[in-house]
Each structure stands twice: as structure tokens, then as C-alpha cells.
């Protein structure tokens, strides 16, 4: 390959998610120009906030080589507990929000207990808690829909200086996640742990405590994301959040988080979630058969993961070249 095409390819692989994003926007924009209007773009971000907030939490877990399959159930259970508390004690919405967050802490703590201290692999722990949490929630509601008060809905539909509240919360969570990951000791230690858990332990990092906090953060984010979406709907169905764990993981991976740990960022998670939502809404906008939509999503996720693999491969080959600085024969 010529150096210039080589570099172009490199650039493409490195920024695959953004390129896919641009293509998606362009395509849907051409298909129906209304798609690129500010209102519909704002709508995308608003709807992306749901998966996005959870994907921010998932990024923490993926960075430590872990996985959390229970987020869909936490999205369901934590707001439900908050709803009961609000109904029983007449709590205002903001206190309900606090209750949901606390519920997230407890549920994440259960995952953390098994992963960090009992050393069971995250896949199994969170697969089990996926069913435990949902089962518990279904039992609480006796398999019926749970209706929230009007306050809840008006909170969900409110806005702060013209920006819808869900977007504001999304932005705040993203900002906090970014600061933690990029600018605190804890955040940098998460990257270190994901890169080499054994070396992290030898470096004197309290790895159990680190892992535990990561799972709690993930559940808290899932709790917030569930709360924010339910506030917009005003009620909670039995099947709420079911299967969402895969959307959330996909969003985080689309945003550049690696399942092998040590790679990923808060910004990436935001981009990944927005991309998924763009595709979803775009497909609705252009009137594609409802049943075909998941297939398109699947293809896009596949492309992003594929690009990620290429990126890693090129990185490796580049490293080899620097070890052996020979002229091009």
C-alpha cells in the first residue's frame, strides 16, 4: 500500500465509529430531509440519554475486563423501588431519584460482592442477578403495570433553560464519568487494572475495592437511566428494560470500549449511544419494516466491532515495525 492510502486507511479505522455516524446521518438525511432538522436531532439525543447513561456505567465495567448483564433488570427494579417509596411515603420526585440511586448502589453491591470478593466470574454473576432482580421486581408488582404520580411525568417532560431534563441529566452524568475516568486516581487505576489485573495488584492497588466500586457505579447509572426514561413515560411495564443490557453493551462497544479491558472513554459511550439511537430513529423516519430494524442495528454494531479488530491489528503491526527499524526493502 502506498503511504498516503495507508494513512487514509489508518485514519478510517481509527475513527470508524465517527465515519459510520456521518454516513448514517448523511444517508437518513438524504432519504428524508426532515431528519436533520434541529428538533429531530434533539429528539435523538433525548432518547439516547436512556441507553447512554447506562452505557456510561457499562464503560466502567468493560474497562476492568468485566461485563454487567444485569443492567436491564436494574433499570426496571431500581425505579420501581423508588416508585413504591414515593407512593408509600409521599416523597417528592427528587427524593425518589435519590431512592433509585440508593437502590442502584445496593443492587450493584450484590454484583460487587460476588465478583470482587467471592471471585465468581462477572458473566455468571450478572447473568444470575439479571434473573434475580427482575424476578424480585415482578414479584413486587405482582406482574402488573406500575403507575407513577403526575409529578413524575411532569419531571420527565420538564426542561432546564430550554433543554429537556433528560438531556441535562445525561450531560451531567457524562461529565462526572469523564472526570472520574480521566482525572482521578480511581479512574486511572481502572485503566491500569483493565490493562493488567495482576500487575495492578502488585502495584499496591486495592483491586477488590476497585472492582466493587465499578459494579456499583454501573448499577447506579442503570438506575438513573431507568428512572429518567420512566419519568417520561409515567408508568412501568413488567417487561421494561428487558434485553436492554445488549443495547447498552453495544453502545459502549460502539463508542470504542473493548471487551478485553483497558480501552474506552466516557465520550465514546455518549457517541455510541447516540449512534444507536440515530439508527433506530432513522429507520423509523424512513419507514423501514419494523421487523427489519434490529437487523440494520446488528449490521452497524458488527461493522464497529470489525473496525475495532482492524484497529488493534494495525496497532500491533505498527509496534512490530518500531521494534525492528529496517528500511523498506
Amino acid at each position: 500500500m502506498k503511504p498516503s492510502t495507508d494513512r487514509a486507511f489508518d485514519f478510517a479505522v481509527r475513527n470508524a465509529t465517527y465515519l459510520i455516524f456521518a454516513c448514517v446521518l448523511l444517508y437518513f438525511g438524504l432519504q428524508s430531509p426532515g431528519f436533520l432538522m434541529p428538533e429531530s436531532l434533539a429528539n435523538i439525543v433525548k432518547q439516547a440519554s436512556f441507553i447512554g447513561i447506562a452505557a456510561l456505567g457499562m464503560t466502567f465495567v468493560l474497562l476492568t475486563r468485566g461485563i454487567d448483564l444485569s443492567v436491564g433488570s436494574v433499570m426496571f427494579l431500581a425505579p420501581l423501588i423508588a416508585g413504591f417509596a414515593m407512593r408509600e411515603y409521599g416523597l417528592p420526585v427528587w427524593l425518589g431519584f435519590v431512592v433509585a440511586v440508593l437502590a442502584g448502589v445496593v443492587l450493584g453491591g450484590i454484583n460487587a460482592l460476588f465478583v470482587a470478593w467471592l471471585r465468581v466470574i462477572p458473566f455468571i454473576v450478572t447473568l444470575a442477578s439479571l434473573f434475580l432482580f427482575r424476578g424480585f421486581g415482578t414479584w413486587l408488582t405482582s406482574s402488573t403495570q406500575f403507575d407513577f404520580s403526575e409529578d413524575m411525568r411532569s419531571f420527565g417532560l420538564s426542561s432546564v433553560v430550554g433543554i429537556p431534563t433528560p438531556i441535562v441529566i445525561f450531560a451531567i452524568v457524562a461529565l462526572i464519568a469523564h472526570i472520574i475516568l480521566a482525572h482521578t486516581t480511581f479512574g486511572r487505576q481502572i485503566y491500569a487494572f483493565g490493562n493488567d489485573p495482576e500487575a495492578a495488584r502488585k502495584s499496591g492497588i486495592n483491586t477488590q475495592w476497585l472492582q466493587a466500586r465499578v459494579y456499583v457505579i454501573c448499577s447506579v447509572c442503570a438506575a438513573i437511566s431507568g428512572f429518567v426514561l420512566i419519568a417520561q413515560i409515567g408508568r412501568l411495564d413488567v417487561a421494561f428494560g428487558e434485553g436492554r443490557e445488549f443495547d447498552v453493551i453495544a453502545a459502549a462497544v460502539l463508542g470504542g470500549a473493548s471487551l478485553m479491558g483497558g480501552v474506552g472513554s466516557a465520550f465514546g459511550a455518549v457517541v455510541g449511544a447516540t449512534l444507536i439511537q440515530t439508527v433506530k430513529l432513522g429507520l423509523v423516519f424512513t419507514g423501514v419494516n419494523l421487523y427489519l430494524q434490529p437487523i440494520m442495528q446488528g449490521i452497524i454494531i458488527f461493522l464497529a466491532v470489525f473496525a475495532d479488530g482492524l484497529r488493534e491489528k494495525r496497532l500491533l503491526s505498527r509496534l512490530k515495525r518500531t521494534i525492528r527499524p529496517l528500511e523498506n526493502a
Binding site: 482521578t184 486516581t185 485503566y191 491500569a192 493488567d196 495492578a200 502495584s203 492497588i205
Partner: peptide, 26 residues
């Protein structure tokens, strides 16, 4: 066998067990 984290910078590797902080941030 080196206990270094290849995804972090040289400085980060040196201070990974305790970063100097200002206002809570690194």
C-alpha cells in the same frame, strides 16, 4: 516481568498507586 500498564503514560505508571492531587483531581 515488568509491572507496567501499556495503555497509560510513563508518568501515570510511576504514580499509579497514588497521584498528587489538586482540588481532588489529578
Amino acid at each position: 516481568e515488568l509491572n507496567l500498564f501499556t495503555n497509560l503514560s510513563v508518568a501515570e505508571n510511576m504514580y499509579i498507586d497514588g497521584f498528587p492531587r489538586r482540588m481532588g483531581l489529578i
